[in-house]
Computed example of a mutant assay.
Amino acid sequence: MSGGAIRHGIRPDDLAHCRAVIRTGSLSFHTASRMLPASVRDPALALYAFCRLVDDEVDEGHDKVRAVLALGARLERVYAGAPRDAPEDRAFAAIVAAYRIPRALPEALLEGLAWDAEGRRYGGIGEVRGYSARVASAVGAMMCVLMGVRDRHALARACDLGVAMQLTNIARDVGEDAAAGRIYLPLDWLAEAGLTPEAFLARPEATPDMRALVARLLEEARRLYIRSEAGVPRLPQNARLGIYAARFIYAGIGTELRRQGHDSITRRARTGRMQKLGWLGKSALYAGGSMLLPQPATLYAPPLAETAFLVDAVAERGQASPWWGAGRTGALLETLAALKARDGAAGQQGRRA
């Protein structure tokens, strides 16, 4: 067993499995992760493999409700120290124990996936940020924990990066989501463009109004990408290159969207190997301090209202409560209970049929 495996407790075969999952399922993260030191990269691969698994279970499964409920049970087993006998679960349980990951973080991710399962739509950009906080910023906060960072300001900027990346995802996938009957765009923005969700889903088109809406979403992401940069110097020196790489590679998707006229309905924005190499070079300049960083005041900007609960869950506050926290929030319990009730009602209806 390698020295890294001893520190984080992940079995070598489980780590190899997680690495393979990320290599095939998330090329952008795999590229950026190669810039991280092994002490951070290995547990990060385990973290992302588990997050990828839970996302795929809900996104690709035939029964999203049961998938979320099953994931809740799996997470319960992880925090009980008895994970399911699967590589991703064992590896995630190992880093939960080794790095004392607050339970509120993976539970926030689960809440976001529960919102997906119930087909929730979002009235305004604040609600979209709230969803992004759960499915993306929660992962960014867990990455900070893996690096030993619990500084409030660094956490707030990491959460900014998570929201920016998710907004980029939403902007890129408008057409694919519509084809699947899903919509993550702010409904009030759609209304301003003279569209109802039903009309758009029935006939998604890259109209000038829709292109303008995508551009507006990317501008929201761009602002947060810039804010996020101020937090990177608060991270360990040997981890900064990888985080800058993730920031620039993901923002590059938005650049491609702009080049194709903000059409994410008839086309999908893709980035090439040479572009990624260019962004890695830029990341190296930033990590080495060869380029000017944003004004220091950016670092101290308060967290987004939608991500403040994640910062609070991680930041050291001198409380005597157990590191894993009190467990599920009332909102998550209510969401899971509603899903369970819906699942039971659907089962009864099926039996009557």
Rank of each mutant, 00 (worst) to 15 (best):
G3L: 09
R7Y: 07
H8G: 05
G9S: 12
I10L: 11
V21Q: 11
V21S: 03
R23E: 15
T24E: 10
L27V: 14
S28R: 14
T31D: 05
R34I: 09
M35T: 06
P37C: 13
R41F: 12
F50D: 00
F50C: 03
C51N: 08
R52V: 07
D56H: 14
V58P: 03
D59Q: 11
V65T: 12
A67C: 01
A67V: 01
V68W: 09
G72A: 11
A73P: 04
R74F: 06
R74Q: 14
L75A: 04
V78L: 05
V78C: 13
V78S: 09
A82Y: 03
D85E: 13
P87R: 06
E88Q: 12
R90P: 00
A93W: 09
A98T: 04
Y99S: 02
R103E: 15
R103I: 00
R103W: 04
A108W: 13
L110F: 10
A114Q: 15
A114M: 15
G124Y: 01
I125A: 10
G126I: 00
R129F: 13
A133V: 09
A136L: 10
A136E: 08
A138P: 12
A141E: 13
M143F: 14
M147D: 03
R152V: 06
A156Y: 14
A156I: 13
C159V: 07
C159P: 12
C159W: 09
L167H: 02
L167P: 02
R172Y: 05
R172A: 02
R172C: 06
G175Q: 13
G175C: 12
A180S: 11
G181A: 05
Y184P: 07
E192Q: 14
G194D: 11
G194Y: 14
L195N: 10
T196V: 09
E198S: 12
R203H: 13
P204N: 13
E205G: 01
E205L: 11
M210C: 06
A212S: 15
V214N: 02
E219Y: 02
R222H: 12
R227W: 07
R227E: 09
S228R: 03
A230K: 06
G231Y: 03
R234K: 05
R234C: 10
A239G: 06
A239L: 06
I243F: 10
F248K: 00
I249T: 08
I249K: 02
G254N: 02
R258I: 03
R259A: 11
R259F: 03
Q260V: 03
Q260C: 02
G261I: 09
H262K: 00
S264T: 10
I265R: 01
T266K: 01
R268E: 08
R270M: 11
L277Y: 08
L277A: 15
L280K: 07
S283F: 04
A284G: 14
L285E: 12
Y286I: 01
G289N: 09
M291C: 11
L292D: 11
L293D: 13
P294D: 11
P294W: 08
L299Q: 11
P302T: 05
E306T: 14
D312V: 00
R317G: 09
Q319N: 08
P322M: 04
G327Y: 03
R328V: 04
A331N: 05
A331M: 07
L336K: 05
L339H: 06
R342I: 03
A346T: 05
Q348T: 04
G350Y: 10
R351Y: 13
R352F: 13
R352Y: 10
A353L: 15
